[in-house]
Simulated assay, not measured.
Amino acid sequence: MRILLIEDDEKTADYIRRGFGEAGHVCDVVTTGADGLFQSTQSDYDVIVADRMLPGLDGLSMVKAIRAAGKKTPIIFLTSVSGVDDRVEGLEAGGDDYLVKPFAFSELAARVAALARRPALQQEQTVLKVHDLELDLIRRRVVRAGREIDLQPREFSLLEALMRAEGRVLTRTMLLELVWDFHFDPQTSVVETHISRLRSKIDKPFDVPLLHTVRSTGYSIHAPR
């Protein structure tokens, strides 16, 4: 395991570094918030251990900046600031755990190991792609082969559901639940009507069809095979 320790007290830093070293881990040490921010965003670590009271850039501001930079590395605060409000503030800043000084190294090691075992958070996908078709969830924009396509809100939601399930068949019932939030069959042709409209916009003006009807089953969107 590779650990980044951000601690300005030399004795505490040496104690922790030696403890992790004896356990077979690599522990890099920096002593300021600015160095901690730089090191954590330039290198990959399994866990970051950070003091809250740091010279220059304080621990809270540093962690907020680390999160703003897109780093999801687990962070545990190690600090003498022990109030309930202080702990809440640390967690809200982006910390994953909070251990108050004085501490037992065995507890710190156990908490670090627990954080390292957490599954990594996957970054939310904001652009869906199938062949030359792109759907931008943030900008609410659909483009195929460089040509922008104007979709109504329900058509956009229908396309999003199909593209998220690329290559798999979604039944009429599944689409009613995903797009219209119907948990019953309204006995209308709403799905078929919207599929037809969607196909006329994303397929008919182009040479290669992407949206396919699977007879007696449902609909699927996939790249040419």
Rank of each mutant, 00 (worst) to 15 (best):
G94E: 10
K71H: 13
G59L: 09
R67E: 09
D58I: 07
G94N: 04
S61M: 07
I48Q: 02
R87T: 03
G90F: 09
R67F: 10
P74R: 15
I66Y: 13
G56V: 13
G36P: 02
T79Q: 05
D96N: 14
G90P: 15
V88K: 02
G95S: 01
T41C: 11
F77W: 02
D35F: 04
R87Q: 03
L57T: 14
M53G: 15
K72W: 10
T41N: 03
A68S: 07
K72Y: 12
M62E: 15
P55I: 14
D51A: 15
A50D: 00
G83V: 00
E89T: 09
D86A: 02
T79M: 05
P55H: 14
K64W: 05
A68G: 08
V88Y: 02
D86R: 05
G83A: 05
A50M: 03
T41S: 14
A50I: 01
D86I: 02
G90N: 06
Q42G: 02
D97M: 12
K72T: 08
V63C: 09
R87S: 08
S40M: 07
Q39C: 14
T79S: 07
L60G: 13
G70N: 06
A68T: 11
M62W: 05
D35I: 15
Y45I: 00
L37T: 01
I76A: 09
V84M: 05
G94A: 13
G36M: 10
D58E: 10
A93S: 11
S43D: 05
K64T: 07
F77D: 03
A93Q: 10
V49C: 14
G36L: 13
G83Q: 12
G83P: 01
I75R: 10
L91T: 04
Y45H: 04
I48A: 09
I66C: 03
A69Y: 10
A68Y: 01
L91W: 09
G36A: 14
G95H: 10
